[in-house]
Design a protein around this nucleic acid. Structure first.
Lengths: 354, 354
DNA sequence: GTGAAAGCGCTAACAG
DNA sequence: CTGTTAGCGCTTTCAC
């Protein structure tokens, strides 16, 4: 039976130095001697329409109290929250790190908050997380994690559909799906260009370190590479399956080395991180990277230019990709801006015979 | 003059396939034919006390409607929000990426959400961001960005103080401050161990690539290194100032090379990322890393073991650091767990004379 | 056990 | 322009 607490009854705010709950708009209004509405208008509302004298009093009261609007309260009152949720497999992976930084840049421009969640490449986890994120009623959900299947796992797909049905927007990486926006990276063409160039440099034998069969990104890169490389007279001798992690590259490479790798062979790793793992395995086996066993990757993460020999790769503008994903999440009209891929030839793939 | 919308008046939820606002607890309750309170109890409340039959009806209704509790509403009703805010300078930097992943791991364990913001190493931005984050009423605020000054900038400090006064907890990296919890990395000892080991390996001349004077992390590392290195008879010939970025390392190294660097000199970079930049500059100058110019860094980011020659460094358990920071943010009783540093000697610093 | 109703902090009509 | 007031979606006494 508590009576509504009018400003008169509410205990006044404690002095500055005392620890206590965050001040509310109510507190500010009382302190300034104005109404809630007025205080709201000057502090948050859509500009104009408040006398200068009032405005000043409110602002000074707010400053004195250290007031900051409660975002949750605003969200529920306005019916929309300022958050964008980002789902990545592993934030410590440079691939996702770059993407995340692009997303953050965009969010910052629009004054939005980005919430981040890690799937650890676990499908069940992913579904749980999407569910939890839905609770935040984010404006958009960016699914950068799903380098996995072409079709996301059923449970996750269901959560996503529900989210979309309730007015959220989901942006995923990969080919077009229903009702969602997608960021397309032309992996296939990029890989084609790479395969062609490698053939031109004189390579004729290649082994590929790929992810599981059916993983879209990996498949596209593999298909593209193979197409142009074989067309130019090269041959892909074997494909080792794994995932996108460094360790997978090392393991795949070790397996290949065990079966024997002729000098002059080119190793095409599905991503730079995988290539880095492979390079390490090659070194550990006492082989030399470059003229002995050449290596190329895909993505152009920062580390690729630091290793030595530096890694030949296909540059994907990852940060822009993240930025684009963000835009897709908030813009009403949206068409994906071009995301040009570029082959970067470095020392890990010297001209054959030179 | 809108009358309170009773369940009877409220339009029933649209059919499943229609797009519309997210269903509310109200909707679920009506669908299940129970009261708001009951629905709340089974879906979110603290267990027990609801008849099995009711529970089932509510759960099925929730499932049917695709209901997910609105976190904002819960936050304001409960007076506490499930978020931890993380502030980093640059999420694409592997140093911060590792830390973030540790924070995310902890948050996940506790069912908390992590919100991430990027300062871009800009003090003014940092203050603005802290202010914005305060609005989320996060349980805790982790300041991983401030590798900058010993004392955070005034404006930021003020926002932080306000946050703490209002019951938030801030965890910063660095030496102890007032009322806040801090994560201490024993940079000084780590650097001492490194300097000692380098001297043992036969190095006698070193140049340092540091951050600005007054930047705590950098100063500690520099002081520690110099202490043991000089004690062992070595001499630090020069200190080039910059920041923690790769480019800073490259620039500092170029400057040093311009002034001339004798063979057998050891370059100690304040962080691995800086060391990576330096290595690149050394290569560009046509010098060799290792027996010609040796390089060592600090942090042991993943890329350090991938470069060749691999980088000698001091391993900081970055992910654990992030995890610890998270714990400090939520635990009532908290003492920092040990964060052992370990010197990792790799090929970039061969024994002198071998 | 279950339900009614009073808020949580804020916004947005709607009156003055 | 300024103040009143009815919610936003949910939790939580407090009765029944």
């Amino acid at each position: 039976m508590t009576k509504p607490a009018t400003s008169a009854e509410r205990p006044a705010r404690s002095p500055r130095h005392v620890r206590g709950p965050a001040p509310t708009l109510h507190d500010v209004a009382r302190e300034a001697g104005v109404s809630l509405a007025t205080a709201s208008r000057v502090l948050n509302g859509s500009e104009r329409k408040v006398a200068e004298s009032f405005r000043e009093r409110v602002e000074s009261a707010a400053g004195k109290l250290g007031y900051t609007a409660n975002v949750s309260a605003q969200s529920i009152a306005k019916g929309t929250s300022p958050v964008i949720a980002l789902l990545v497999a592993d934030i410590a992976d440079p691939y996702f790190g770059q993407i995340a930084s692009g997303v953050a840049r965009g969010a910052d421009e629009e004054g939005l908050v980005v919430t981040i969640a890690i799937t650890e490449r676990d499908q069940a986890r992913e579904a749980r997380i999407v569910r939890a994120l839905r609770g935040q009623r984010p404006r958009g959900l960016i699914l950068a994690a799903s380098r996995t299947q072409e079709a996301t796992e059923a449970e996750t797909a269901h959560e996503l559909a529900e989210f979309v049905r309730q007015g959220g927007r989901v942006v995923a990486f990969g080919p077009d799906g229903e009702g969602e926006r997608h960021i397309e990276i032309d992996n296939r063409s990029g890989a084609e260009a790479l395969g062609r160039l490698m053939a031109e440099r004189g390579y004729r034998r290649a082994i590929v370190l790929g992810a599981a069969d059916g993983v879209r990104t990996s498949d596209d890169r593999l298909v593209g590479f193979r197409a142009s490389f074989e067309q130019a007279g090269g041959v892909v001798e074997s494909v080792h399956r794994g995932d996108f992690r460094r360790e997978s590259g090392a393991a795949g490479m070790r397996a290949a080395l065990d079966r024997g790798v002729e000098a002059g062979t080119l190793v095409f790793a599905i991503s730079d991180v995988v290539a880095l793992g492979a390079m390490s395995a090659i070194r550990d086996a006492g082989r030399e990277i470059g003229t002995d066993i050449a290596v190329c990757g895909f993505d152009d993460v920062p580390a690729s230019s630091d290793v030595s020999p530096a890694l030949t790769t296909v540059r994907v503008p990852l940060s822009d990709v993240g930025y684009q994903a963000f835009r897709a999440t908030v813009d009403v009209e949206w068409v994906q801006a071009p995301l040009p891929l570029e082959v970067i030839v470095r020392a890990s793939t010297p001209m054959v015979g030179s």
